Lab assay of single mutants.
Amino acid sequence: MDLSALRVEEVQNVINAMQKILECPICLELIKEPVSTKCDHIFCKFCMLKLLNQKKGPSQCPLCKNDITKRSLQESTRFSQLVEELLKIICAFQLDTGLEYANSYNFAKKENNSPEHLKDEVSIIQSMGYRNRAKRLLQSEPENPSLQETSLSVQLSNLGTVRTLRTKQRIQPQKTSVYIELGSDSSEDTVNKATYCSVGDQELLQITPQGTRDEISLDSAKKAACEFSETDVTNTEHHQPSNNDLNTTEKRAAERHPEKYQGSSVSNLHVEPCGTNTHASSLQHENSSLLLTKDRMNVEKAEFCNKSKQPGLARSQHNRWAGSKETCNDRRTPSTEKKVDLNADPLCERKEWNKQKLPCSENPRDTEDVPWITLNSSIQKVNEWFSRSDELLGSDDSHDGESESNAKVADVLDVLNEVDEYSGSSEKIDLLASDPHEALICKSERVHSKSVESNIEDKIFGKTYRKKASLPNLSHVTENLIIGAFVTEPQIIQERPLTNKLKRKRRPTSGL
């Protein structure tokens, strides 16, 4: 017993010596996670971090007073192994002897410093981030199933929210409404489509400006004509009531908005009720001829604005009016007729031209339509002016008669200019590109209106002035400009410049 007691005391002394060697000089306990400095002193990692955080910048070693920084600290694995072995020896000594260790306080702390507990403390002390800490805590505590279930439920809930957000973003663009038309193969669909197009076009005519009305009406008319041609002859009974509906809707729209509806009346003529396609083609032919005449008058307007600064050229074209007008009339009417003589009366030419125009518009179905009313009214106005011209010709002399006839021709041009508003800008460009020769010939008609105004002003003063002067240069210039014009009389060319000069002198006297 005595020997055993001596041996136990010796073992205890050895353990105490080893414990003092492996103590931390700051906390005076076994080193936890030993860290060595540049001066080869060993301290606990937790104690050194606490010391360095007390001051900004480098701190001093507690043993040798040298500078220490966080970067200079290094882990010493050898001392950590020695500490672990010492703890194992102490545990074995207690089991063999059955005696508690003399320094129970220190031993209890040593026992608490088992490797499992050290790992837990290291995970908390090290600044490795929240995710690494959570992982280490889960690994160190596998015995708690409640914690695992809560963490898994949190992760699953987070994943569910992310997935639901993604699915919502994908589903939202798919919620856009999609309209699908289910059509049938019955023959009544074509008639319904035609009526739908006509009503939609009328609404567009009321909303859209004048520049786009003609294009819309032309497209709708083409669509309706194609649909009529596709149907068989057996379905004509269905077409006639639908066309009557079209007429009623167009008349109502014309009564409500007459000014807006006139812009599309000329282009919509071939959508009118037709028994066969031949009647629609004839109407299209007549409309094309009318559009040609209207576009020519538009060309004359532009030329008149350009040549208004040259009064000499405008005056020299006075007698070329009849010849150029004959050529335009021959090209406007498709019928083959002989040219009228140069010395014939211009009023007779106008009456013949009106007689040619009237039969074209005397179809029984055309008179029933609303768009032809505008053309009939313009023709009636022309006839009224010609009836007035006959009365004026009986009273005035030959020279005054010529000037009045020219004035009436200008009035006719004004009437025809009203129809110019109905034609589109695209048709003007096509006419100029296809028929430049006709445009040059028809330019002379509009330029002549300037000389007509001068004659009217001469009649106000009650006299006409003449001068025997020749202007050969002007006649040559005008002959080169206009290709299809005829030779003019030299006496009238000489008379016109004198009248304008005298007018300039006598205007201030009349004002006084």
Rank of each mutant, 00 (worst) to 15 (best):
D2S: 10
L3W: 13
L3V: 13
A5S: 07
A5R: 11
L6S: 02
R7E: 05
R7L: 12
E10G: 04
V14Q: 15
V14S: 09
A17T: 08
K20Q: 11
K20P: 01
K20G: 07
I21S: 05
L22S: 01
L22D: 01
L22K: 01
L22F: 09
P25G: 14
I26E: 09
L28S: 02
L30N: 00
I31K: 01
I31R: 02
I31G: 03
K32R: 10
E33A: 09
P34G: 03
T37K: 00
T37P: 00
K38C: 14
C39L: 00
C39H: 00
C39T: 00
C39S: 00
D40I: 02
D40V: 10
D40R: 11
H41Q: 02
C44P: 00
K45G: 08
K45Q: 06
C47I: 00
M48T: 07
L52E: 05
N53I: 13
K55C: 15
K55I: 12
K56S: 13
K56A: 06
K56N: 13
G57V: 15
P58V: 12
P58G: 11
P58R: 09
S59K: 03
S59G: 08
L63A: 05
C64L: 00
C64H: 04
C64G: 00
N66E: 07
I68A: 07
I68W: 03
K70L: 13
S72C: 14
E75S: 05
S76Q: 09
R78G: 03
R78S: 14
R78D: 00
F79Q: 01
F79V: 06
Q81C: 14
Q81W: 15
V83T: 02
V83D: 08
E84P: 14
K88V: 09
K88E: 07
I89R: 00
I89D: 00
I89W: 01
I89T: 14
I90D: 04
I90M: 15
I90S: 02
F93G: 00
L95V: 15
L95R: 04
L95E: 10
T97M: 01
E100M: 07
E100F: 12
A102N: 14
N103R: 11
N103G: 08
S104E: 03
S104G: 08
S104C: 08
Y105I: 08
Y105S: 10
A108E: 10
E111I: 13
N112M: 15
N113G: 07
S114L: 01
P115F: 11
P115T: 03
E116P: 06
E116M: 03
H117V: 11
L118P: 05
L118T: 08
V122S: 04
V122Q: 09
I124R: 08
I124V: 11
I125E: 09
I125V: 06
I125F: 13
Q126P: 04
S127Y: 03
G129R: 09
Y130Q: 14
R131W: 13
R131D: 12
N132G: 09
R133I: 00
R133L: 07
R133V: 10
K135D: 11
K135C: 04
K135R: 10
K135F: 08
R136G: 11
R136P: 12
L137R: 07
L137C: 14
Q139V: 08
Q139D: 03
P142Q: 10
P142S: 07
P145Y: 13
L147V: 11
Q148Y: 14
E149S: 06
E149R: 10
E149N: 02
E149C: 05
S151F: 05
S153H: 11
V154Q: 05
Q155H: 13
L156A: 09
S157P: 09
L159M: 15
G160E: 08
G160D: 06
T164W: 14
T164S: 13
T167R: 06
T167E: 10
Q169Y: 11
Q169C: 14
Q169I: 03
Q169L: 14
Q169R: 08
Q169T: 09
R170D: 13
I171S: 14
I171G: 08
I171A: 09
Q172I: 03
P173F: 09
P173V: 06
Q174C: 01
K175G: 07
T176C: 09
V178F: 10
V178L: 08
V178G: 10
Y179K: 12
E181G: 08
L182S: 02
L182D: 07
L182K: 02
G183F: 05
G183A: 10
S186I: 04
D189L: 08
D189N: 11
T190Q: 08
T190P: 13
